[in-house]
Amino acid sequence: MAELTIKGHAGIGPAVTGTALVASDNFSARYDLDRIKGIFVRPAHKLVGQSYVGRILVLNTAKGGVATAWMLYEMASRGMAPKALLLNFANPIMAQGAALADLAFMDRFETDITRAIRTGDEVTVDPGAGTVSVRRT
């Protein structure tokens, strides 16, 4: 089992461990998700049809509007949120949503995070320390 540690900017939310779901695509809760079913539904999204619930969701950048700032809290209240969200570049909305939802959230990594992590990797996110540890079997 190989382990890799990646540094990023200090983030928001608790330290968590989970299984990664990765795409070199972007993220908006309103534009991309069926929040009731917990799956990506935007036809053009690379993760269409896949469940993000309880996953370490790894995508490129924040897209779309402001609604995600409310939505992450609402999703978390139903147990239908991702376990963590990692982006190459956040926008304010994702940070605000993570702060309200107490969702583990980081961005600004030393490398392209969507290439450094693969779907299925076991990932520990420590927003306080600004580190992500990746284990691959």
Binding site: A69, Y73, P92
Partner: peptide, 8 residues
């Protein structure tokens, strides 16, 4: 202004 989502 920045994008200020609902909570912010």
């Amino acid at each position: 202004s920045n994008f200020e989502g609902g909570p912010s």
